[in-house]
Amino acid sequence: AEKTGIVNVSSSLNAREGASTSSKVIGSLSGNTKVTIVGEEGAFYKIEYKGSHGYVAKEYIKDIKDE
C-alpha cells in the first residue's frame, strides 16, 4: 500500500534521480511537503510528488498514517 510521508526538514530536501547521494539532484522539496512513498531502496524512499518520481533520504521523511 502507498504511504504518505512528510518532508521533515527546516529548509529543503533534495530529491534525486537514484537511491544514492551521488545521484543527480532533480528537485527540492520544502519542509512539511506531503509526498507519496511508493517504494524503498536502502536508505532511500522512492517518492511521487506532483506526478514525478524521485529518491529522498529516509531519515528526512516522517511517515504519517493514511487518513
Rank of each mutant, 00 (worst) to 15 (best):
A1C: 15
G54R: 03
I37T: 00
K62Y: 08
T36P: 01
V7N: 02
G39D: 06
H53W: 14
G5F: 05
G39E: 03
Y60D: 09
G18Y: 13
E59I: 12
K62F: 09
K34Y: 09
G27M: 15
F44A: 00
L13D: 03
G51V: 01
S52F: 13
G5W: 05
V38S: 02
K65N: 10
A43K: 10
E67K: 13
V25P: 05
A15F: 15
Y45T: 05
A15K: 03
S22Y: 06
S11A: 10
V56I: 08
T21V: 12
V7E: 01
G54H: 05
T21I: 14
F44L: 02
T21Y: 14
T33M: 09
I37V: 04
V38L: 13
S30L: 14
R16C: 08
S10R: 12
E17N: 06
S11H: 14
A15E: 02
T21P: 12
V25A: 05
Y49W: 09
S10M: 12
F44E: 03
A1D: 08
G31Y: 12
I37E: 00
A19T: 07
A15M: 15
T4N: 06
N32H: 10
E2C: 15
E41N: 06
N14E: 15
N8L: 09
E40Q: 07
G42H: 04
E48I: 14
S20P: 04
G39L: 02
I37H: 00
D63G: 08
I47C: 06
I47F: 02
A57P: 15
K46G: 02
E2Y: 15
K65F: 13
T21L: 14
G42S: 04
E67C: 13
V56Q: 00
V25Y: 04
G5L: 04
R16A: 03
I61D: 00
T4E: 07
F44N: 02
K62E: 08
A57V: 08
D66N: 11
G39C: 07
E2W: 15
G51H: 05
N32M: 11
Y55N: 00
K62S: 13
I47Y: 02
S20A: 06
S22F: 07
H53N: 05
V7P: 02
G18M: 12
S10A: 12
V9L: 07
S23M: 05
V38Q: 03
G31F: 11
K58E: 00
V9G: 10
N14M: 14
V56E: 00
E17M: 08
N14A: 14
T21Q: 11
I26K: 03
A19F: 04
G51M: 04
K34S: 06
E41L: 07
I6M: 08
G31V: 10
I26Q: 01
S30R: 14
V25M: 05
E59P: 01
K34V: 13
E67P: 12
K62W: 08
D66S: 12
A19R: 05
G5H: 04
S28V: 14
Y60L: 07
F44W: 14
L29R: 00
A1L: 14
G27T: 07
N8Y: 08
I64P: 06
N8T: 11
S30E: 13
I26M: 07
